[in-house]
Design a protein around this nucleic acid. Structure first.
Lengths: 155, 155
DNA sequence: TGCCTTTACTTGAACTCTCAAGTGGATTTG
DNA sequence: CAAATCCACTTGAGAGTTCAAGTAAAGGCA
């Protein structure tokens, strides 16, 4: 047996198990909903949202990767896939020959708008419908606390 | 722009972003630590732990998949990989010709013991070191609340 | 100006996970 | 008791991610 010696308290153990299971199932639920309704995974949906919210709907690849906390490689692969689907496009950066500027296409925007409603509904259904305002605040505080360690660049 | 109309309150939006980022970075941190120190992903580590905690260190594949909330297919692929690494083994179930009984090998146990300490240290470092007892309780409550919807089989 | 390093991204292979289809042993049922 | 169905798993293809290595432009700096 592993875990006979207690490195975590009983309460911490229980919370940990619940947290791991809840986050796993939550990600799966979000992925399934978006895959079903939009044909793209949650991670790709997030890229479309980020681009749609950017000024000019355009961002340098590195800037986009930084904002999403994705690796360059992950972003490149994702963009390649989204580009094939016609949802985004890339073109050489005029001021830096190495760079690429990513944009969401009209097709991408047309996909995004109706999809967003379904996504938010899923977020409500799985999370916010069941939490009190106080719990939302607590959860936010807890996550922000963890982000200090998890994301040193976090302000 | 998407999201001009508010489907979530500002507080919910903020909490949602923090939650998504924190859970993503947390999973990555756990994966990286285990990949580095044990050469296996977090999802595989969890299988080893589950087997090590089972009576006789053995479980039917379906029972194991259910406990982990993994699909049969996911578990089969994972077991194939872990088996190749010599950490687990499978053998026909004596009472049901269709079934397989999964076990963790001595090699698997020998890997697990020292690894567990490092894993718990990472869990502490990223999570519990930064939360008050009250926050741990809050987080546990919140996750259990969400699990009612996310995992209907959850008691 | 010409090297040398950094920066911005891309590529490819290996790995994990999902989804759909397949295999073959139990179970039911007419 | 044979045929149909169900159940426990496996398989294979496709997609997304990571990691290491590669390309090519930018920015020192001597």
């Amino acid at each position: 047996m592993v875990g006979k010696q207690k490195w975590l308290t009983d309460q911490e153990q229980a919370t940990w198990r619940s947290l791991m299971l809840a986050t796993m199932l939550l990600e799966e639920a979000l992925d399934r909903q978006l895959q079903r309704d939009a044909g793209i995974p949650h991670a790709y949906y997030a890229i479309l949202v980020a681009l749609s919210e950017a000024s000019e709907r355009a961002l340098r690849m590195t800037e986009l990767a930084d904002r999403m906390h994705y690796s360059q490689s992950r972003l490149t692969h994702a963009m390649t896939s989204l580009e094939r689907a016609g949802l985004v496009s890339r073109h050489r950066c005029p001021t830096d020959g190495r760079g690429q500027v990513a944009t969401i296409t009209e097709t991408g925007m047309k996909l995004l708008r109706p999809i967003a409603a379904g996504h938010v509904a899923e977020v409500r259904r799985t999370v916010f419908d069941h939490l009190t305002t106080e719990q939302v605040a607590q959860l936010g505080d807890i996550c922000n606390t963890l982000l200090v360690t998890l994301d040193p660049s976090h302000e």
